[in-house]
Amino acid sequence: MAVRTTAAVGDVAEGLRRWRSWFYLAVESVKNQYRRTVLGPWWLTLQTAAYVVGLAVLFGAIFRQPLDEFVPYVAGGFIGFTLLSGLTRNGAEVFVNNATTLLSTRQPLSMLVFQMVSVELLQFAHNLLIIMAFVALGLVPLSPLLLLVVPAVLVITINGVAIGLWLGPTVARFRDVGPFVASILQVMMFFTPVFWRVDEIAADQRGALVGWNPFGYLLGLFRDPLLGDLPSFSTWVGVAAVTGLNLLLAAWVFTRTRSRLPYWVS
């Protein structure tokens, strides 16, 4: 038991120590995804901008929301949710997708997770340009609260690493979990307050519809400061619970599965 724990901790420590390697590889991988296009990763930004504006206009009309408030709300929500769902989807597939690398190049297994998280963060950074444009246009208030976005992204990053370390091995072992995660994520987009506001739901139904949703808390932590609000107490509590649970699962699963993982993907 102690041997397994030492090996798992050593893997993560060595992975962290090699940050230059995985950050370099993450940048290369983003470049490679768009190598044959002219706009490159900026396609993502355009795609997100089109999505945000289109949906904000549509849902704004349906829910009768003033556009100057609703557009930044949807933008923050959609960009945050894209990061969360990307981390979850790619965290689930991280070891299965990198099977050939894992079986041909010796490296700490955690390095693959760090690399995956960096790729998601790089794509997220491209989308942040939209938020900056909204700040310039005055749609997002320029306040000291904006600084809270930094710790919010850090907390989301920690959760992303943890998800990769527990969901990744789970999917490698139980292949039905991958498609399950993918189908749940599609529905989660609608169950998470991205296109609608929590206060539009009757108070007695909020617990059942929103309270259980881990994405809701992490999203709130990122989006509220963009709208000039301090995240509520329940958001902080939810974020602490979700992060704690993810870290516990990561420690438990990664320690137990690390030495079997290469066999499962071979």
């Binding site: 290369e28 991988s29 490679n32 995804q33 190598r35 050939t100 041909s104 190049t105």
Partner: peptide
Amino acid sequence: EAGLDQEA
């Protein structure tokens, strides 16, 4: 092809 990125 193992370990090579095909697009790069």
